[in-house]
Write a protein that binds this DNA or RNA. Sequence first.
RNA 1: UGGGGCGUCGCCAAGCGGAAAGGCACAGGGUUUUGGUCCCUGCAUACGGAGGUUCGAAUCCUCCCGCCCCAGCCA
Length: 585
Amino acid sequence: MSRSNSEKDDRKRIKEKENPEAPAPNSGKPTNFIRAIIEEDLKTGKYDGRVHTRFPPEPNGYLHIGHAKSICLNYGLARDYNGKFNLRFDDTNPIKESEEYVNSIIEDVRWLGADWENRLLFASNYFDKFYEYAVDLVKKGKAYVCDLPPEKIRETRGTLTEPGVDSPYRNRSVEENLDLLDRMRRGEFPDGSKTLRAKIDMASPNVNMRDPVMYRIVHASHHNTGDKWCIYPMYDWAHGLEDSIENITHSICTLEFEDHRPLYDWFLDELEVYHPQQIEFARLNLSYTIMSKRKLLKLVQDGYVDGWDDPRMPTISGLRRRGYTPVAIRNFCDRIGVAKRESIVDVAMLEHAIREDLNKRATRFMAVLNPLKVVITNYPEDQDELLDAINNPEDETAGTRKVPFTRVLYVERNDFREEAPKKWYRLAPGREVRLRYAYYITCQEAIKDENGEIVELRCTYDPATRGGDSPDGRKVRGTLHWVSAKHAFDAEVRLYDRLFNVPDPDGHKEKGFTEFINPDSLQILKNCKLEPSLAAAKTGDLIQFERQGYFCVDSKYSTLEHPVFNRTVTLRDSWAKIEQKMKNK
RNA sequence: UGGGGCGUCGCCAAGCGGAAAGGCACAGGGUUUUGGUCCCUGCAUACGGAGGUUCGAAUCCUCCCGCCCCAGCCA
């Protein structure tokens, strides 16, 4: 944990000076109300100075960026306060859960960099304990077996404004309840025929307290416990116990569980067991995407996207395939903060985070996405030369590489305009530009085919400008990327755009989110021309195509014979802004 | 119209009675063999509204307004 950054150290020193006796484990990190609570608890010795958090996913879907926020929060707290962090599967509903999800979640959490050490845990491993606790509650007269079918339970629960009415089974004897519960467990009753309910208050203004169901009968095989159980605990019954059993100190969950906290507390209090505290924060929403697992599943099942790991998905696996790094995601999560107010974070924030990381680390290459042939008419027909190119101007240790230059090249088609707009620095008839690391060239002529389509540029070069500098000191404004036609290899490049074309696809009253899907969110370019060094690129490499964006080798479809690159994010493009502004005038 | 939350810059978000941090976005300028990066500069007399308490309020009190969540044998 050596976060050695002089600025951070400075801030740490300042903080330590302000409060000398506090170790200020939080220094340099963004502050938030949860950290305030923890620091207060540490001060008062509430949990003997312990901090123990957990990330408790249900294995019923893939993790997304919203989960990353929770993981970073929980893990970050444990790390910064010298505490512990558990990865615990909240696997209490066998009909929705599967091993596939368990495995993907483990992979994603690990990839993000959270360390649960040896504490990979499953709520299902506590089922015996839960059952013993349930028996305790029955013995205390605080729980009963109810024979009401689901509809009746709903009817007798009352409404938001009217109280519910007691179940006719509410006052069974302890002995009868014990016997019935045992027979429920042994499988004597069909699904849905009975439940175990907490005996709280059918008139409570908090609907969650109106004798909530603790166990339901489900004759289904569980991914972990197999057929051992046919009664499964409900979330409210199980969750606090899981936290208690694991000695969690701060049980952090999202806002919608705020109304459940009295229940969380009630179970633990009645049982008189170790009692962690539940703290709620606002889940992450990102503009131009959706975060609900159910809706993400629909995108997958209805074929709007190519699986959970489609690079346009906000899933961790999608972002990974898109080329996002754990560093970028962590920085993003640190910066969006943690609070109780619901909000929609601008996706530009995420894009900023990935650009920031990749700018420092990605190796630069030249790749022409929409090739336009260029012939350097005064360059010797059979000459080849190798020019030096810098691998990463942000990192000297990245070194240099050789790029082959020849008479016939490709440049980007949209780097040429027959009629140059104002402030156009690139190629146009008569204009001189620099080919990066190569020569200054001047466009003499654009050759068209019978349809008027430009098929080739005839240019001349200045041999004195080798490497890209002019000895006479004359300036050119534009520098273009290029690739030698003879040496380039073909690759497929996939350009991604936001999956939805409105900021809040989930926010419309009449229209469903699928109506806002951006039809141009994926653009596949087939015959891109890449510089030879790129042939060695492999999955996981951090790559920039100069002047265009950050790219990665697609982990799903790329092969040696048929390389596929994904665009992670474009570079910021101030020319596009200028052009847009001119258009708007 | 029951209960629980939340309202500070276009988007996030600090602030916890002494007088509005920071990031993103945006705008302008400088450097530049990526119109990238980097570096400067600007960007809430104002904290949902109205009253009140106070020498002093985004921070305390009152009322009002707006938004979100809850009536699964989902989590």
